[in-house]
């Protein structure tokens, strides 16, 4: 069972307190009406599904209830870091540093 650090609670807690919520850094278009069908399809359904570093959303559902973002390796399952929703995507250097 993974340990996950909630950036809102500033505490590491077991995975059972959390729920996964899909890929991170996909924001809802401000005005969906101006999007083509193709663009809307890409927004709705197309995800990066990488082997390796993945930016994803989690929710501390049995804790503070807040959503946050995480960087996790899809091969080892291990988290590199977590950060509050709304913050920018961490750089490669920041992720490297967090892993070391």
């Amino acid at each position: 069972m993974l340990l996950i650090r909630c950036p809102h609670c500033a505490a590491e807690r077991p995975e059972v307190e959390f729920v996964y919520a899909g890929e991170a850094h996909i924001s809802r278009p401000r005005d969906p009406a101006v999007l083509t069908d193709e663009q809307w399809k890409n927004h709705l359904f197309i995800r990066s599904n990488p082997r390796g570093t993945h930016f994803e959303r989690w929710r501390h559902i049995h804790g503070c209830g807040r959503f946050f973002n995480a960087v996790r390796d899809t091969v080892t399952d291990k988290f590199a870091m977590t950060y509050k929703a709304g913050l920018p995507r961490p750089s490669e250097a920041e992720i490297r540093e967090a892993r070391s």
Binding site: R28, R59, F67, A85, G86
Partner: peptide, 13 residues
């Protein structure tokens, strides 16, 4: 409720 929280916290904070 979870869907509402998601939109409220992450799309329309």
């Amino acid at each position: 409720l979870a869907t509402m929280e998601d939109y409220l916290q992450t799309e329309w904070p």
